[in-house]
């Protein structure tokens, strides 16, 4: 087996794990990640927390303002604040 073939570092594994949360990991990356997960407890613990966070946010339908919406809100608010001061 060539060095690096099917072997990824812990950092790479975490990076793939992050991408996988958004369905952006390729099938090959998923294989590499799964191999790492089979023996690395550190990666396994990270993956567990990471999955939990995704489920948490998805299940509870967390919402937030878009950047432009927040900027617009800030602008309107600051105008009002200035008038008041």
């Amino acid at each position: 087996m060539k060095k690096g073939f099917l072997f990824i570092s812990c950092e790479e594994a975490m990076h793939i794990c992050d991408k996988a949360q958004y369905d952006e990991a390729s099938w090959w990356e998923k294989i590499e990640l799964n191999i790492r997960l089979s023996w690395c407890h550190f990666t396994k613990a990270y993956a567990k927390k990471n999955n939990q966070l995704s489920i948490f946010i998805k299940q509870h339908k967390i919402e937030c303002l878009k950047q432009n919406e927040r900027k617009q809100l800030q602008k309107t608010f600051e105008q009002q604040l200035k008038q008041q001061q």
Partner: peptide, 10 residues
């Protein structure tokens, strides 16, 4: 806005 807008929106 920075601290509470997202919470209130949610």
């Amino acid at each position: 806005i920075q601290l509470y807008s997202d919470y209130l929106f949610n």
